[in-house]
């Protein structure tokens, strides 16, 4: 039981990271019906840039806003180069391939800049675990959960309360109508990509002290976060938190009881099953197709 509580705690921390990345998918999907297939690489870049800043002597807490700024720039870049031309020519294949291509380029650049080996990210909090309900909890894990929730709350409040957020919501509801009402939907889409990569980069510096940092850390995280986005539904905020926790716990328990080699399998299988049975996700609403 004690072991299980332990697995549950680390599962929740991991799940919240997935939820934040999945939240990034939701942001761009909401405004433009597109996803960044290189979301995992945005996270990886955030973590590595953060590491460099920390090594340069920047304080961890001061580094976070800088990394977020970097993430925003990176996201805007992806949108301008990879997504905008595809939206213009209405090519779904186009943006899928170009965001994949950009992801590959980012990964390759990271390999050449930071090397191919995984690096240790210094933890800003004490690394001695705290005892809670008979299990060990790392202070960093608590920071991950709190940080993830705060990040999502901040974006939600922005969307609901500010006039800029309303533009985002309007674009989500009807892109053409929003455009006719004088909203620069192109800018909104760019902004959503910037925001999306910001959350990914933020997730990167949150999780980096718990795992190792390296050029290859992004790919699987991005894929599993997509699984979370699908399980929770691409339109449901509550769904991704639940989905993230389900996946995170499934993963830590599989890793412990079966083998760490298999830890990625349950999430991916869950993704296949959900898509085969209920493509709109557990919390999503299915759309009515019009002919």
């Amino acid at each position: 039981m004690q072991i299980f509580t332990q697995l549950l705690f680390s599962g929740i921390a991991l799940g919240m990271i997935y939820a934040v990345i999945a939240f990034g998918y939701q942001l761009t999907f909401a405004t433009s019906d597109t996803l960044n297939f290189g979301q995992g690489d945005a996270l990886m870049l955030g973590a590595l840039v953060g590491l460099t800043l920390v090594n340069l002597g920047v304080n961890y807490w001061l580094m976070i806003p800088l990394v977020c700024l970097f993430g925003a720039a990176q996201g805007a870049f992806v949108e301008r180069i990879g997504v905008r031309p595809a939206i213009k020519i209405k090519s779904e294949f186009g943006w899928i391939m170009s965001t994949i291509a950009l992801g590959i380029i980012f990964k390759n650049v990271a390999e050449n800049v930071w090397g191919r080996d995984d690096l240790k990210f210094p933890s800003p909090l004490p690394e001695s675990p705290m005892h809670f309900l008979g299990a060990n909890v790392l202070p960093m894990e608590i920071l991950v959960v709190v940080g993830a929730v705060l990040m999502m709350l901040a974006v939600e409040i922005f969307n609901r309360k500010s006039i800029y957020g309303k533009a985002v919501v309007a674009t989500f509801n009807d892109r053409d109508a929003a455009k006719l009402m004088g909203i620069n939907t192109g800018l909104v889409i760019t902004f959503s990509y910037a925001l999306s990569s910001t959350t990914a980069a933020f997730a990167g510096v949150l999780i980096a002290p718990l795992t190792l940092t390296g050029a290859t850390m992004g790919a699987v995280l991005g894929l599993k976060a997509f699984a979370v986005a699908i399980i929770g539904g691409l339109t449901s905020g509550m769904g991704i938190i639940v989905g993230g926790i389900i996946l995170g716990v499934a993963e830590t328990t599989t890793g412990f009881y079966l083998s760490t080699g298999y830890k990625d399998v349950p999430g991916l299988v869950l993704l296949l099953i959900v898509l085969a049975v209920k493509p709109a996700g557990l919390f999503g609403k299915s759309a009515i197709k019009k002919v």
Partner: peptide
């Protein structure tokens, strides 16, 4: 830089 070259070629071909 092999992968970057592949990436750039992909972008080029797609558009």
């Amino acid at each position: 830089w092999r992968l970057s070259v592949f990436g750039v070629i992909t972008l080029f071909v797609v558009y």
